[in-house]
Amino acid sequence: MNRVFYGTVLLLFSFLLLVSLVVEREPIEQSKGYVLEQGTQETGAVNLVTALYLAYRAYDTLGETIVLIGAVTGVLVLVGKHT
């Protein structure tokens, strides 16, 4: 009974995922249009993903580096004792 329930939930979930991937939908216009038009000129990067995460959202990247340095410190504290 339990397995049938979980299987049904999983199937429903995967169906929703399939619908969300396949169905075309209206994109969020404002910021997307701005980045598509001005991004390459303002930042000089042809690859707009890089333009986003190093120029418009560089603060997020700073946070990501803090997360990574925290992970390295944690590993050093936990297993780096006897090396």
């Binding site: 000129q41 303002e42 930042t43 000089g44 990067a45 890089t50 333009a51 190093l54 120029a55 560089a58 603060y59 990247t61 700073l62």
Partner: peptide, 16 residues
């Protein structure tokens, strides 16, 4: 804070 200092591709290249 974190504003580009070099002409356009420069800052992104260095940060990369």
């Amino acid at each position: 804070f974190l504003s580009p200092l070099f002409p356009p591709p420069g800052t992104i290249f260095i940060l990369n």
